[in-house]
Design a protein around this nucleic acid. Structure first.
Length: 315
DNA sequence: ATTCTCACA
DNA sequence: TGTGAGGA
């Protein structure tokens, strides 16, 4: 049969059929009179097979190998599956990077230079190893929250900043986090806030760090009994504070200040971008912060305007 | 109608 | 990895 009927059967184009012959995938007879090809049924069968493999994105070279050595079929297809997976990963990565760029690029009209800057930055962030990531985050936290407050945050997060990135979700979270850290401006503390935190001494910070490193593990995988003990201890402390007027006023001041700081941090996107993404990146942090939040919610604390802490119920 | 070659993406 | 133009 001539090429036009083969086109009908196989749904391939003439161009493709000619090309496959040129590449040595089929060998139709040639009419010496006019150089027209005479395609046999087996030629057509081969073309159908080629067409199917091409739709699966198997390369001409691989198809040729398979035809030459049919034993290679399984091997080649397995190999091809792997390369498709790699391709998918590559595309997913591009997708994530692009998605991250897109949000911030829409409202800023800096155009191409800004996009390039972000692409460069995000791509580099994906190549960081755990050590670099940790360093990057600590530096940025310090930049956004200058002074002792930032130091305390770094201490807070240190145990959770070195989580490896394995899944797509984690990569997406990481990119979102990097973008947040990159574009957010550093915070302006209120005067009182500044005073309070800058009055902290190095010893204070060391104490805080010691306290925290000892406490982090306690909250991960905590048992019900331990939770109950924690509860009791907490109420005791609260009661002691309530009976001490100095403590009360101090508590009142800090509670007012942290409230306004929390609002500032929320406006920055600290909770939505930083905390949420870190939860995705570090299951330890997710568990730590969730159990702690549950714990404090379960206490049902209220601080009245005199700085007295209302303890809902003690069980 | 088909093939060939070349330039092009 | 093909496609399109254009001549034979």
């Amino acid at each position: 049969m001539k090429i036009s009927v083969v086109v009908e059967i196989t749904k391939l184009t003439k161009k493709a059929i000619n090309y496959y012959e040129e590449e040595g995938l089929i060998k139709p007879d040639v009419n010496p009179q006019n150089n027209y090809r005479e395609y046999s049924q087996s030629n057509v069968d081969e073309l159908v097979q080629i067409s199917l493999l091409r739709q699966l994105d198997v390369s001409i070279k691989e198809i040729r190998d398979i035809i030459l050595k049919p034993k290679m079929l399984k091997d080649k297809l397995e190999q091809h599956l792997i390369s498709l997976d790699e391709e998918i990963n590559r595309l997913e990565k591009s997708k994530n990077v692009l998605k991250s760029c897109l949000n911030s690029i829409t409202n800023s009209n800096d155009g191409l230079p800004e996009l390039t800057r972000q692409l460069l930055f995000l791509n580099r962030s994906l190549e960081m190893d755990e050590r670099e990531k940790e360093g990057f985050m600590k530096r940025q936290i310090q930049r956004i929250f200058p002074g002792n407050f930032g130091k305390m945050l770094v201490i807070n997060f240190s145990p959770f900043l070195n989580a490896p990135i394995n899944t797509k979700e984690e990569e997406e979270a990481w990119l979102d986090l990097v973008k947040f850290l990159d574009e957010v401006e550093s915070i302006e503390y209120s005067k009182e806030m500044k005073e309070m935190y800058e009055n902290l001494t190095n010893q204070d910070m060391e104490k805080y760090e010691k306290f925290l490193t000892e406490n982090v593990n306690k909250w991960i995988g905590i048992t019900d009994e331990e939770l109950l003990a924690e509860r009791k201890q907490f109420f005791e402390i609260m009661n002691r504070m309530n009976s001490d007027p100095d403590m009360q006023s101090a508590w009142q001041i800090t509670s007012i200040m942290t409230k306004s700081l929390k609002g500032q941090m929320k406006d920055l996107g600290y909770y939505d971008k930083f905390v949420e993404n870190l939860k995705v990146l570090s299951s330890d942090y997710s568990e730590y912060t969730n159990t702690r939040n549950e714990f404090f919610e379960s206490l049902n604390l209220k601080v009245d305007d005199k700085g007295k802490i209302e303890v809902a119920e003690i069980r």
